[in-house]
Amino acid sequence: MTPASRRLVEIVLTIAAPLLLIASWEALSRSGTIDRRLWPPPSTLWGTTVELLRDGSLLTDVRVSLGRILVGFVLGAVPAIMFGLAMGLFWPVRAFLMPIATVIYAIPKIAIAPLVLIVFGTGETSKYVVVGLSIFFLVLLNTMAGVLAIDRSYRDVARNFGAGPLDLFLSVALPGALPSIFTGLRLGLGFALVVIVGTEFIDADQGIGRFIYQSYSILAINKMFVGLLVTGLMGWLLNAAIGVLERLVIPWKVAG
């Protein structure tokens, strides 16, 4: 098989899977093989989507949730990178912070959400804090691991040219750990979406999580499906955005 024809088959297969899924769902639902009330035909979801887009409430919910994720992301990631670099470079810092970091890292962050809501109230601050927390430890530990994996010879080169601690920080540890930092950021964004939807279930008057939960409480199955689809698209969008950022920040990364 030539590369070109292989590519063509690849594209056809990629498109075939979702089409097949939607078509069989549609057929099974219309024929009554599966319960129409629980599995409405996908064709009817289109109408619901258009309706929701027209009155603007869905887009507002998406914007609110994305805003919470982005603010929380920056709040969590920036200090995580700084502390992670310090933990990677200096063993006393590592010894001091490691036990706390590993234990809190292991707690599912959605389980911390109720506590955060009590401490920070029901406003936006608590949403930022929950997202920030869910990202912080992931990025922290990935950054540290990234620094530790940097070949020792690079530090020797820097020291041989007279690098001080700050030079080591900025010219060796940070760039050397960047690929690993981005692994943390990418995973962190995924968790952030999970956590913000969960938190909005518990308490929010806006956001995609609230949208899905409200649809559930009034048994608006169509709206729920639209909410799920939109959440999936948001995850895809965030992942694509971090990919673009990564290529900008790490132009030297070997592709693949």
């Binding site: 010879s153 020797d156 080169v157 010219s171 760039p175 030297w252």
Partner: peptide, 28 residues
């Protein structure tokens, strides 16, 4: 003032060739 050429991997992968050569000068 000494400068050392190391065994194996020592050229910073995150800097361009020109930035690598200028690294010691930058620190100075």
């Amino acid at each position: 003032r000494n400068a050392m050429v190391f065994q194996g991997r020592s050229v910073f992968p995150w800097l361009t060739v020109r930035q690598n050569v200028g690294y010691g000068l930058k620190l100075r």
